[in-house]
Design a protein around this nucleic acid. Structure first.
Lengths: 232, 232
DNA sequence: CGTATAGTTGAGTGTCGTCAATCCTTGTGG
DNA sequence: CCACAAGGATTGACGACACTCAACTATACG
């Protein structure tokens, strides 16, 4: 028996994991692999020509902006995550590739058709959406009530977990490479570049982390880091 | 033909609106009307004994807290909104009645059963959850990037819309009663009581709003209010 | 090797938080 | 009906944390 989407890196973790090979086969024919370069926009807020896709590789940001251009990253999408907004004609935020990325793309028509056909798909998307909602509410607590140090510590804890999840290891990593620049971290945390930088060096001075390069983090004291995150 | 849930105030706006009378009938037998007094907790974070319910009347808050007790309101629930967290054993936040409230309650078992049985119900819950996610992301922009004045103005714009939606009128109201105290508004906006109060009086001094009583708002200049909200 | 971009560090400012006093509202009992 | 108490809201003085502006350093890239 042939396996649908042979060689797909995320077959067992993405939404498709809820479908059998037989169920996936017709959908598989409608998908389109598409590459996006670092910095390239995937969806513009308000654009009706929306993309529905699974992230195969890379990291993307969802970001909202005020009228005068201030920016807030409201979500980060990793491999196996789903991008798109069913039941609405457009999204309220932009989606931009933070690294080179590969997506498994469907048209609105095909995806919504599949959503109607496969009950399981709907359930899985609902589960994912509920998880995202929980996550975004946790982030609201961070944005509204945490100090700069707590924000940065929370971000690093979260990052260690997320990067760990993607690889073979299932536990938080003690060393990893940030897929975000300082400016992007600032946009996630509702801070400025300078404040992020200062808090990073403070954590290093305190012996909680080390910064082998500006983009890589080594967690020296996970307990201390979690403590400074005030639950994260 | 008898109508399921006769006299229910939210029959046509809540999740149940997606079900026909025939479909609703068996569910209707399993529901339980329950009243909560102002300030009474409905769900505790981490409690497995979770409630699944439609809000019939009143306003409730979802709030998250840090380990040391700082509080952030991450959601407000109005009549016809749905409360509960399917596919998880507990919620990460508390649900508390802000006013006297009436809920139409189901047990986890019955609700998840219904979710499995009725495809339409799943679709409607997915739609709602996606809407909530959009809303919470919009709020992340507010929490992370807006000034105190913009936060308060955004809150008032939003409130005028929300209260208007509930009544017969479908447009934003120019005068309404706040269901929240200053302290609760502060917890929604990630500010302190004092800052909320100062911004309110600033808006009044500027002739944008009037405050007939501390709990009621009269919008004198909706355009100016929206402008100060930076899109809300 | 030189330029451009990203990141760090420093000095000074401003917005919002803290602490405290006062005012207003609401409810209760004399 | 009024006095009083209690909680909520407002206002003020002050301070701190994070932002702004700026200079400098490190890293990436041609």
């Amino acid at each position: 028996m042939r396996v649908a989407c042979p060689g797909c890196e995320i077959r067992n973790r993405a939404l498709c994991a809820g479908l059998s090979d037989a169920e996936l086969a017709p959908l598989s024919a409608l998908k389109r692999r598409r590459r996006f370069a670092k910095g390239e926009p995937v969806i513009w807020a308000g654009d009706e020509n929306m993309i529905f896709a699974n992230v195969v590789s890379g990291v993307l940001k969802l970001n909202a902006t005020t009228a005068d251009g201030r920016e807030q990253i409201v979500g980060l999408m990793y491999p196996a995550d789903f991008i798109g907004r069913p039941y609405a004609s457009s999204t309220r935020y932009n989606v931009v590739a933070l690294t080179d990325a590969e997506l498994c793309v469907f048209s609105r028509k095909h995806f919504e058709q599949a959503l109607r056909t496969y009950d399981k798909l709907k359930r899985l998307l609902l589960q994912r959406t509920l998880d995202e909602l929980d996550h975004s509410r946790e982030w609201m607590l961070l944005l509204g009530r945490k100090t700069a140090e707590e924000k940065v510590a929370s971000f690093l804890v979260q990052m260690a977990r997320q990067i760990g999840r993607g690889g073979c290891a299932r536990s938080p990593l003690d060393e990893f490479v940030l897929p975000l620049s300082r400016a992007q971290i600032a946009d996630v945390l509702g801070l400025t570049i300078e404040t992020v930088s200062r808090q990073m060096t403070r954590l290093r001075s305190a012996g909680v982390i080390d910064l082998p390069t500006t983009r890589s983090i080594r967690v020296l004291n996970e307990i201390a880091l979690s403590a400074r995150a005030e639950q994260g």
